[in-house]
């Protein structure tokens, strides 16, 4: 069985709301795929449809080429974490894993292995009702790993984890992917995925907005812009425009240049003896790229009674601010 998730043209309507509107993507083995989009974009619904919990009105969702409900020992095909709070509070964490193991014909030994793997040994024999959110996440991940499945699907796994836990889960997810598993993790915050995901499926309004590698997405959003600070603005603009760049005057003594590498700009300015105080290559963050992509989805939700122009202005402003913050941090 190939370790994949395939989602083809899912549509689902809840009353008057189109929750899924032609959702299609594919999760490949050996990498962490981030499933990202604003709240309400259809991430959780898609996951529930993949897992056979919700029925789609249209389309198919396959795990390893088969619909989930037809799987035998499903937990050894897909491990899923949907809601870490879905626990019987008076049952211990270990016993929660034990009944799951029994349902798959797995031995109790396997339960102790996954408890060890997620670092829950000290709490395993305590009642799950007393667990912190982070411990519940670990227990949920242990449940997902129980059947040692080639496909993992985790809904907002970073939620509620402390910084140490976040570092741990990133390492775990990367190592699981490195073993050749297909790992799909959802989040509504791109920053959570920044250092974890290799590939991104960005969704908005129930469909895929972008299906791309993280590197490609950042490159697209950056589009090679350079900011130049100079007291001789007109000379600089003339010199750079001559060399084929697109230039735009910014506020006071700045110019935004696109179409030229930063090194080439420095060489050109020196050759023309134009003084400058700063040349900064502008590199977009994942967050910025994500904002660009999901702007439509955000607009759609903010659009009632607001003109498109205003919404765009707000979004652009936010992106610029984020970029400035990023640079200041460097």
């Amino acid at each position: 069985m190939e370790a994949t998730i395939e989602v083809i043209g899912l549509r689902k309507r809840f009353g008057r709301t189109m929750a899924l509107d032609g959702m299609s993507f594919r999760v490949t083995p050996g990498q962490v795929t981030g499933f990202v989009g604003p709240n309400g974009a259809g991430k959780s619904t898609t996951m529930r449809v993949i897992l056979g919990l919700d029925a789609a009105d249209e389309g198919t969702a396959l795990v390893g080429g088969r619909p989930y409900p037809s799987l035998r020992n499903p937990l050894s095909h897909v491990g899923a974490l949907l809601d870490a709070a879905a626990l019987q509070p008076s049952r211990t964490g270990r016993n929660h894993l034990l009944w799951l193991a029994h349902s798959q014909g797995l031995p109790a030994r396997r339960v102790d292995e996954v408890i060890e793997q997620v670092g829950l040994r000290s709490a395993a024999r305590r009642k799950a009702g007393g667990y912190s959110l982070g411990m519940r996440q670990r227990l949920g991940i242990a449940a997902a790993l129980l059947g040692d499945p080639p496909v993992l699907m985790l809904d907002e796994p970073v939620n509620g984890l402390d910084p140490e836990g976040i570092v741990w889960i990133r390492g775990l997810l990367r190592s699981l992917a490195a073993e050749g598993r297909a790992v799909l993790i959802s989040s509504h915050l791109m920053s959570e995925l920044q250092d974890t995901a290799d590939h991104l499926v960005v969704v908005g309004r129930g469909r895929v907005v972008a299906d791309t590698s993280v590197a490609d997405l950042i490159a697209t959003a950056s589009s090679g812009r350079v900011t130049l600070r100079t007291t001789a603005r007109s000379e600089a603009m003339t010199a750079l425009a001559h060399a084929g760049a697109t230039v735009a005057a910014g506020d006071r003594d700045t110019i935004t240049v696109s179409g030229l590498e930063a090194e080439r700009i420095v060489t050109l300015l020196n050759a023309n003896a134009v003084p400058f105080s700063e040349v900064a290559a502008h590199r977009a963050t994942l967050e910025e790229a994500y904002m660009d992509l999901t702007r439509d989805a955000v607009e759609f939700r903010a659009a009632t009674g607001v003109t498109t122009g205003t919404a765009t202005g707000v979004t652009t402003g936010t992106a610029t601010g984020a970029a400035a913050g990023q640079e200041a941090a460097r």
Partner: peptide
């Protein structure tokens, strides 16, 4: 990438396993 293959022995998938799981619950 070589897709992952589990070394875990697959358990039985029968009604008896479900009953046992419910009893454990």
């Amino acid at each position: 990438v070589t897709p992952y293959r589990s070394g875990l022995r697959t358990g039985r998938d029968g009604f008896a396993q479900l009953v046992r799981a419910e009893w454990t619950k």
